[in-house]
Design a protein around this nucleic acid. Structure first.
Lengths: 343, 343
DNA sequence: CTGAAAGCGCTAACAC
DNA sequence: GTGTTAGCGCTTTCAG
């Protein structure tokens, strides 16, 4: 392990001079800089991140707090796309990404924040009365929530307008003539689920269709969850003729359930998903879905977090990423058989 | 920020005693432990990771070096499954995961290893004459390669037997009567691609079918890459009647290309994929694929890495994770229309 | 059993 | 311009 002292000794300067050269301080003569840099090169020196971090109180790393549900979340393409957006920005700015997978409990947060493991964090899920969010807010730690903050919590967010997106998707189904429209959601305490079900209900009401609790099912955020939820919806005495799934993965599970029960899509049953993952286009029938631009959401969140890190008393920011309904075959609007977004 | 000194002062002991209590040293009296722990609790103390790391020369974090191709890799479900395996083990052992996405170049490695950012790393790709691998080997830094090491490099690995897996998949197609079998690979310099094409060629030769360079196409590891590669294969004067894709995502691209050109699967064209991602089962037709157990691969790799971290002069280890051909509908063996593995 | 002292590798006043 | 000094928060000899 070659340290800054080794470099200093060999270059006949003090450690602080080396440190200044590393930071490209203007107060160092060109000659010294050159000499030190040669030694730096020759010794193949790389500063110890921990030591530097200890004194500057920074880590050049940002954390991602995996949401409730933990490991399964890795497998949601939605996460992957978001991460690729985050990673792009982090990278450009010289930040590494630390994944915290031990669940977003207060212990983890303490370890992360108080342990100064990262300079800021992303929160990937929010619940009503979320203790994690409260702790983050109270500690004034740089953080950005991907999603909407629950009531009473003040934190920077990047979000889709899920209420209006779900509204538009539901409206689309209504205009296609459906009267019995089901809603298939993920965990019912997540804000994202609440928002989407709200948009769904609003649309129904605006078109004089009374929301029916029988038609709202919530499950876990996996293909299997969609399958089971759909089974329950289809078991209903007055079954829905269309279903809005709050996630494409759920929609795929729903499609599998429908296929098993012998329903033909879209003639007997229409399905619309959420998130527009790659497979939506490839599936058969291709899945109509709400495109949420996760990559952009991730990069916007990363930029926002970096702002907060640079300027610690920045007010909470909020950004909304647009959504579009991408009409494909699963909803029955097949005369519009293209992948082009609906206006 | 409450430090160890604050705790010491309030508990009327020295900082070293607090440190020993934290480590649950047997040399501290029960009474002192209790008293210190109360203060620990009361002050909500959490040790500064950096400071601790600086002196112990550890970070309790393991790194993942994103492969060549970088960001797009996030979107490969294969990565997600592997990460969920890694994360599970890391978690249980109190390690965090740091993602290095700036590309597996020697600069990044230097930053990671010499900068002591993590205690060990996963390498996710290997090329012939890989400078990154050489550097890792030479630095004797704890590392596990997910894949096979290129010749001349000694590093611990966890891998599928890709040669034999590709052999079996190809053999399956041959037994179904195919004579013109194409190979659709990812980047041609990756060891994984080389191994799979080797297994493919071996099978052809063993059945007296001469490998034909015209039938081997390599592309990038994305759906779009599969699409383009397949277009090229089908443009061939003597087109293949079956194709082995070296990745499911490529296979999906291939399916899309086939559909666009009006080929019916599996009657006119058989396709077999690799990795058996979730969507393989859901696709229409469902995709026959080689199941590689990525989750297990990830957790095995994590366990191996932790071994190396604990015992720095452990010899390189090697572990092979089994594969199975999961026969579904895309290969035409539809009389076997189940998801059960072929023996 | 506990405390004092040294030091991990680096940066940042403060001198000169 | 550059060196000296102090110290980030913690662990770990070494004493006692």
């Amino acid at each position: 392990m070659t340290t800054i002292k080794d470099v200093a000794r060999m270059a006949n300067v003090s450690a602080s001079t080396v440190s200044r050269v590393l930071a490209d301080s203007p107060r160092i003569s060109a000659a010294t800089k050159r000499r030190v840099r040669e030694v730096l090169e020759h010794l193949d020196y790389h500063p110890n991140t921990l030591a530097r971090g200890l004194v500057t109180n920074t880590t050049s790393a940002i954390g991602v707090l995996m949401p409730y549900g933990g490991n399964e979340f890795f497998e949601n393409p939605f996460f992957a796309q978001m991460m690729s957006g985050v990673s792009e920005v982090a990278n450009e700015n010289g930040y590494d990404i630390v994944l915290f997978t031990s669940g977003p409990d207060t212990d983890t947060i303490d370890r992360v924040i108080r342990g100064r493991r990262v300079d800021g964090i992303f929160l990937l899920s929010s619940k009503q009365d979320d203790p994690v969010l409260k702790l983050v807010e109270q500690q004034k730690f740089p953080a950005v929530l991907l999603g909407r903050a629950p009531d009473g919590i003040s934190v920077s967010t990047v979000n889709n307008d899920n209420v209006s997106a779900a509204y538009k998707a539901t409206e689309h189904l209504i205009r296609l003539g459906h009267k019995r429209i089901g809603f298939l959601g993920g965990a019912s305490d997540l804000v994202v689920t609440l928002d989407r079900v709200t948009g769904y209900r609003n649309a129904l009401r605006d078109y004089q269709l009374e929301p029916d609790a029988q038609l709202e099912v919530s499950s876990f955020f996996l293909e299997q969850g969609g399958y089971l939820g759909m089974m329950r919806l289809l078991a209903s005495s007055d079954r829905p003729t269309a279903v809005l799934a709050s996630d494409d993965v759920l929609a795929f599970g729903a499609m599998r359930a429908s296929a098993e029960l012998g329903y033909h899509l879209p003639s007997e049953l229409a399905i619309v998903g959420f998130n527009d993952i790659r497979m939506a286009e490839i599936a058969n029938p291709s899945l109509t879905s709400v495109r949420v631009h996760m990559h952009e959401l991730g990069s916007a969140a990363a930029n926002m977090l970096l702002e907060h890190i640079k300027n610690s008393d920045l007010e909470p920011q909020h950004k909304t990423i647009r959504t579009e309904l991408v009409v494909r075959n699963s909803c029955g609007a097949s005369y519009l058989n293209t992948s082009s977004p609906l206006p």
